[in-house]
Design a protein around this nucleic acid. Sequence first.
DNA 1: TACAACAATGCAACTTTGTTGCAAAATATT
DNA 2: AATATTTTGCAACAAAGTTGCATTGTTGTA
Lengths: 139, 139
Amino acid sequence: MEAKITAILRKHQLSITEARKKILSLFWETGNALAHGDIEQKSSEDFDRVTIYRTLQTFVEKGIIHTIPTSDNSVRYALCKDECAAGHHHDDHVHFICDDCGTTYCIDEVSVPKVKLPKGFRAVQTDLVISGTCNKCEQ
Amino acid sequence: MEAKITAILRKHQLSITEARKKILSLFWETGNALAHGDIEQKSSEDFDRVTIYRTLQTFVEKGIIHTIPTSDNSVRYALCKDECAAGHHHDDHVHFICDDCGTTYCIDEVSVPKVKLPKGFRAVQTDLVISGTCNKCEQ
DNA sequence: TACAACAATGCAACTTTGTTGCAAAATATT
DNA sequence: AATATTTTGCAACAAAGTTGCATTGTTGTA
Ligand SMILES: [Mn+2]
Ligand SMILES: [Mn+2]
Ligand SMILES: [Zn+2]
Ligand SMILES: [Zn+2]
């Protein structure tokens, strides 16, 4: 586990620090996406708020995590696939946000469909975000 | 114009006030989506910030405007189609955010494709947000 | 039109969220 | 181990969002 974490950091040419290891391991443990606030709750005793902001920003830039847009002013972050690198993300999967429990899932098995845009519009990134009830909250 | 605005408010059983008329007309004039900040800039001399927050919230609840998720912690709002009502939105079109000029478009002519989710996941709302270069910024 | 009932607004005070500069500490490099 | 580089914490700040309440504006009715 620890080895895996440090390997990822090293691969992206980041120095290995306590904050980065802890935040990265949080993503591995939960499996799902995390908002800044989630991370702050789970590590506020260990790190300053500012460090979390900077770490998330660094991880996004390096292609370790990707962002998930939301309609409630709280961007979520989730681990990228191996192929992602600095400046080149390849996370073309659907995201699901549960209205009940708030959990945000990367639905890796469903990829975002290509859509044809009107003349003159050039797409760089496409996000498909679905909200509703997740498989745990559906009884 | 003024007549159209008041008609919309009346239709949704909202009392007709200066703030609501002004904010609603801003959406009609620009045609594109607006963030809270945009509205504040264009009307801060007329209204208090709090009024803008409350007005946008009311408009969303009544089905006059809909939200557009973003990855930069600034939700955008745009006019709904006529069929939208309180609690029931029918805005199944694609949204486009220009990385150059920041303009957010409702691409009405392109509708969001249906996607099949894993067992147990029930979709209530689907948002397809594309970012890139818009037809005005593409030279 | 005038009045009463109701709803919306402004203001103040506050909380939460995000940003920046800089010195201290940690990490990497030699 | 010594030095160079990077990261972190802290403080101070700015921006964004929330809440309660008195005042003002709107609506329906007499
Ligand atoms: Mn994802
Ligand atoms: Mn729209
Ligand atoms: Zn759930
Ligand atoms: Zn543009």
